[in-house]
């Protein structure tokens, strides 16, 4: 897996954004076509068949359609991470792509959100992309409602899948994120969503950072499919930024980076990053992780960014 960040420009201002947008400073940088081609070569070398396009808002890149065309000509599948605020021309283009070639993951705006200015556009995007589109949400506070996601799937005949992400702290920045103390409250909400979606054969997908102890043990059986890899997925994802630098993941964007080289593969870059992260892996997100029977077994201790931050706090 590797993500190509086409731009850090965005047309939303999400307080939790870990993509360098929202309240964080952006440079409105755009990936060049040469770098995109270099990135495709890197994906081929690494045996990766899917191009994951993200940003900022990737569809704001002036050459977005061109990039998708090039990736498809090179037999890649496309996974697009978007906020759904896509211009009509690009939306029509995405609508016309074959179903098997494109998956779109859209971060939704809650219907009752105060600042829901983009909601009408999101509805258009859902209507037009239908089964190509997976709805998702980034959870950054414990009061967030999740149950509306199923209504979107049913109303717009979307893919029967919901992606749940946790907003993590970006080292050195002040973004909104879900504090581990709030994980159990969110665990209860996720469970309620799961019970609701079970009737409709809709699956839940957890992004990185979910840990088994968010959920009461008596409910682990209900969540057995979702929990298979929960707690074990905090590894460098590798995001290639518009400036040609790889980062482990967005929360670690200020922690380390590496320039893309002509010959490097995904595994080689991950090895370097993992070595730098190794000392922090002795700790989990909670003080009780060290005494938990799942630690370093079924769970690696949660988001490494938060684990690093635990050390930073104690630095002072």
């Amino acid at each position: 897996m590797a993500n190509l960040s086409l731009t850090d420009k965005c047309n939303k201002q999400c307080t939790y954004c870990f993509a360098g947008s929202g309240n964080n400073n952006t440079n409105n940088a755009f990936m060049t076509i040469d770098l995109f081609q270099t990135a495709l070569n890197y994906l081929k070398r690494s045996g990766i068949k899917q191009v994951r396009l993200l940003g900022g808002e990737p569809t704001l890149h002036p050459n977005f359609v061109n990039f998708v065309d090039i990736a498809l000509e090179n037999n890649f599948e496309i996974m697009l991470f978007t906020n759904g605020l896509i211009n009509a021309k690009t939306l029509k283009y995405l609508h016309e792509l074959p179903l098997g070639k494109l998956k779109v993951l859209m971060n939704t705006i809650h219907p009752n959100e105060k600042n829901n200015s983009g909601q009408k556009q999101q509805e258009k995007t859902m209507k037009l992309l239908g089964k190509k589109l997976i709805v998702g949400v980034n959870i950054f506070n414990e009061s967030q409602d999740l149950l509306y996601l199923l209504d979107y799937i049913q109303k717009y005949q979307l893919k029967n899948e919901i992606r749940l992400g946790i907003a993590h702290p970006i080292l050195g920045k002040q973004n909104a994120y879900l504090h581990p103390k709030q994980y159990k409250t969110i665990g209860e909400k996720v469970l309620a969503l799961k019970i609701k979606v079970m009737k409709y054969n809709t699956s839940l997908t957890f992004d990185c950072g979910f840990v088994p102890c968010m959920f009461a043990p008596e409910y682990h059986n209900i969540l057995r499919n979702e929990l298979k890899n929960t707690g074990k997925c905090c590894e460098p994802i590798l995001d290639l930024m518009p400036n040609g630098k790889f980062i482990s993941c967005y929360p670690l964007s200020n922690f380390h980076s590496m320039n893309i080289k002509e010959q490097s593969t995904s595994n080689e870059i991950k090895q370097v990053f993992n070595k730098q992260l190794e000392p922090y892996k002795l700790s989990g997100i909670f003080p009780y992780c060290k005494t938990c029977s799942l630690f370093n077994n079924a769970c690696n201790g949660g988001c490494i960014s938060y684990r690093i931050q635990r050390f930073k706090i104690e630095y002072q």
Partner: peptide, 12 residues
């Protein structure tokens, strides 16, 4: 640096 754990401290 260090992080306080339930059963000790992790030193970095």
């Amino acid at each position: 640096g260090y992080a306080i754990e339930e059963n000790g401290v992790t030193i970095l």
